[in-house]
């Protein structure tokens, strides 16, 4: 998922190019997941709050996945924790809602 650039040691000194590349791959994986998750939520027929809970559940699973991908040392790949936790979550919400309503009307 998040195979960005190669970074140096676990000292908080990061190459900006690598950091942006890593953040971009987080953003792409989140966008992809929100679209797929929207379709899945629509097919399973979630409505109302359940769907949003499902979305945030997916995003939490994604965070755990990213954490595992970064071998549990976030400081090696990102400048702070919020990158893994919230980067792209709210941007993906609109995509999720759109692709959630597609299957429901068919």
């Amino acid at each position: 998922m998040a195979s960005g650039g190669v970074t140096s040691d676990d000292v908080p000194i990061l190459q900006t190019e690598n950091l942006t590349s890593n953040v971009k791959s987080i953003y792409y994986s989140r966008t992809f997941l929100s679209i797929i998750g929207g379709v899945v939520a629509g097919i399973w027929g979630f409505t109302g709050l359940t769907g949003f809970v499902f979305y945030f559940l997916i995003m939490m699973v994604a965070s755990i996945g990213l954490l595992a991908k970064s071998k549990f040392s976030v400081q090696t790949y990102f400048d702070n924790w919020s990158r893994i936790l919230i980067e792209g979550v709210f941007g993906g919400l609109m995509s999720f809602v759109l692709f959630w309503s597609y299957p429901l009307m068919i």
Binding site: Y27, Y28, T31, F32, G91, G92, M94, S95, F96, V97
Partner: peptide
Amino acid sequence: GLRGLFSL
């Protein structure tokens, strides 16, 4: 909503 799709 399609903004995300476009970036993909």
